[in-house]
Amino acid sequence: MNIVVIGKSGQLARELQQLLPESVSFLGRDDIDLVNSERLFSTLGALAPQAIINASAYTAVDKAESEPEAAHLINCDGVENLARYCKSTNTFMVHVSTDYVFNGHKGVPYMPDDTIEPQGVYGRTKAEGEKALLKILPEQSCLLRTAWVYSVHGNNFVKTMLTLMAQKPQLGVIDDQIGTPTWARGLAQACVFAAQNCTKGVFHWTDEGVASWYDFACAIQELALQKGLLKSAISILPIPSSQYPTPAKRPPYSVLDKTSARQAFSTIQPQHWRSQLAKMLDAL
């Protein structure tokens, strides 16, 4: 199947490179202009994909608060242009969104059809991208929301924690934000399945289980010590979000319900976040 991946250097794109054959085209910012629809149509037209996986996004959550235009260009305008291309060529599109489209106050796992109410610029621009996709391409797209993504590539919470745990005698980590860590490898597998099977609809895909950032940090240290990635343990203290203010609001509870995804993605199933973390640390 002729698949084109939008994105080249991000965590998800790097994992997709491990799963897809060398013949698949990965288009970075130097290869495709998501904002210029004429150039985008020309670039993709030459490749004539049967499916597109959009693994590109503006993901700097706090920076987006001071760069709303830049976030909107990639997270909304770019998605809209890709959807229009797919509409005109009968191409299937897989698009990845985020738990940040929800306000985080529901208290139980969010369903794919729950009302979205983003709290910051990043979440709003991702929500606008979702709306554009579902308006233009409802019958030829798979919208996958995910959360707390990490991998061996790029900058992420796991690698930051490992660095800090090796340097500092003590860490304070937020314990009142609840979600689900997600290894980018599992998310990449879901994207490939959706593209190859044209799995239409809105779905949630994270690893299984629930954790606070504090729980996640404790697990990172425990497993890293077992695997020899850290030499000694440090004290990790739970702290409230109020002690670590950020420019952007985070949803306090953003666990995503994956019931429909488990049914639709029949040959792959989400794995518990601790086992996925162990696999990532082995790879690291």
Rank of each mutant, 00 (worst) to 15 (best):
A13I: 02
L20W: 09
P21F: 13
V24F: 08
D31Y: 03
N36R: 09
S37V: 15
S37R: 15
L44V: 05
H72S: 07
C76Q: 14
D77L: 15
K87R: 15
N90I: 08
F92I: 02
M93T: 03
V94L: 11
F102M: 00
D114K: 00
P118C: 06
Q119Y: 11
V121P: 04
Y122L: 07
I136C: 03
L137C: 08
P138S: 12
Q140S: 13
C142F: 00
L144V: 08
N156A: 07
F157I: 13
T160G: 14
T160N: 15
M161I: 04
I174T: 02
I178G: 06
G179I: 08
T182S: 08
A194S: 01
V202P: 03
H204N: 09
W205Y: 09
E208M: 09
E208C: 07
E208L: 12
A211G: 02
S212W: 09
A217D: 03
E222N: 12
E222P: 11
L223R: 15
A224I: 01
A224F: 01
G228Q: 12
S232A: 14
S254Y: 12
A261P: 09
Q271D: 11
W273R: 00
S275P: 03
A278P: 06
M280C: 14
D282V: 14
D282R: 13
